[in-house]
């Protein structure tokens, strides 16, 4: 521990006191604990305040004497007053008011439960087995027709379009170019 004294101003003292009385924020607690571990004067001050705080918090409330309370009650004539509303109060506090809350809670729980069970029912098929087989057959036929069309299109492109419309003119133009180049070389 550093024996040098740390300069304690009013702001720091306030934090030390708050930490000692256990109502400081987290950062102040860390800061003061760190300073107390490093500087003896901070630790001494913190310990003194902590000791006082503990003593203060251990003091219990003073008991108001029953005899004085009796005096108040007799002055207000409370003991003589009848209490016809006692059972109605018990009913109001424990049954009447809470019953509304209970009913609403029960309704909410029932709604949630029912909605869960209704949603969990398995989805049954709306078509017969024959209809499913027929649909499958029709799908296969449709796919076969599409495949045939694609096949024909591919054959026509590779054999007719590419050979006659592209390859032949290209070959002819390349021959012409070749002849021109040869003639230029001879000259």
């Amino acid at each position: 521990m550093n024996q040098n004294n740390y300069n304690i101003d009013d702001s720091l003292l306030e934090k030390i006191i708050s930490v000692a009385y256990d109502d400081a924020n987290f950062l102040d607690k860390i800061k003061i604990t760190y300073l107390a571990s490093k500087y003896s004067n901070v630790k001494k001050l913190l310990d003194e305040y902590k000791h006082t705080a503990n003593e203060v918090h251990s003091i219990e409330l003073e008991e108001f004497p029953n005899s004085s309370l009796e005096k108040v009650f007799s002055q207000l004539e409370l003991n003589k007053e009848k209490q016809p509303q006692f059972w109605s109060d018990i009913y109001t506090v424990f049954i009447k008011r809470p019953s509304l809350v209970y009913s609403l809670s029960l309704l909410l729980i029932l709604t949630i439960t029912v909605s869960i069970f209704v949603k969990r029912e398995p989805n049954t098929s709306q078509f017969s087995k024959e209809e499913v087989v027929e649909a499958d057959k029709q799908t296969r036929e449709a796919l076969y027709i599409v495949a045939t069309i694609f096949n024909d299109a591919q054959t026509q492109i590779t054999e007719d379009v590419i050979k006659e419309k592209i390859a032949a003119p290209l070959n002819q133009s390349l021959g012409i170019l070749n002849n021109i180049i040869n003639k230029e070389k001879q000259q």
Binding site: L61, E62, E63, F64, L69, L78, E81, Q83, D89
Partner: peptide, 22 residues
Amino acid sequence: TMNNKTLKYNLLVKQFKNNIYT
């Protein structure tokens, strides 16, 4: 929620009499 004045008062007194006295 209580209607009974005396019971209300008794509860308040029981709760706070020592605070007032201290």
